[in-house]
Amino acid sequence: MSNTTEKALSLLRYLPRVCLANIRDNPGAKKKSRRGRAQHGGDYHGAGNKGSNQRQNFMRIGYETGNNPFYLRFPHEPYYKGHHLKRQYPPLSLLDLQKLIDTNRIDTSRPIDLVTILNTGLYKLFPDQHHFGVQLTDEGADIFAAKINLEVQWASEQVIAAVEKAGGVITTAYYDPHSLQAMVNTKSFFERGIPIPRRMMPPPDAIEYYSNPGNRGYLSDPEKISEERLVLAQKYGYTLPKLDSRILEMLNETKDPRQIFYGLHPGWVVNLKDKVILKPLEEELKEFYAL
């Protein structure tokens, strides 16, 4: 007998029992099948063999092989029809605005417009997502106490009352997406070296809002606005404070309906490196960028 067999037999003597748990096949007794590729050994991944299941040619969602489909069976009102095309005005509350003023993030000695609010870095606007500016909401209307010259894109009657009660001035103004893109990041806009765009007039469905003195629209008659200020004061029961004579110049500062930035004419190119402003002299350009 060979040495190996002797060893195996002597081992057998000491082993308590030979069972399925401690024996194994002879080497080379089992032949491995082909190694299938992919996750489950190269099978059909649950899709089966032949037919529409294997080819995965599913019907479109909701299709019921000729039946009147469930999603069309009942009449409905399309409440949200066209929601993706509507103008969005992300909100900013009066409380937020007051907090920005209290923490010295906004300088009240100058008119506050969308550029000022965006420059704080605490309010985000995405013109490519149909954002058209800031909507001032009435949260914190009771505590609001800042004499400011404010320009927002949308404001409710309560908000207008709160700002005017505190001794301020509010205007609602429209900016087209190209202008908004210039306002979102003014530094990067000036660095692009392109002329400041001419602000467009509001679209037909927004003209009414922005020419209504009740909304303090920027296209409405200033005399009618001062009339409406008194009307609103009577409606909400407060005495309209006289505009502070020390800051009257700031409160009366306005932008042209074609202007984006205070004091900067459309068509100008700002050179931040050399700290100069380039102004067009061509008649054609002057006409194109006219206020």
Partner: peptide, 22 residues
């Protein structure tokens, strides 16, 4: 060939600085 004028007016530059973020 576009004609343009270069302005170094500090009063106008104040408005540029006003538009720039801190």
């Amino acid at each position: 060939n576009t004609k343009y004028e270069v302005s170094k007016d500090p009063e106008e530059w104040k408005y540029v600085e006003r538009a720039l973020p801190l």
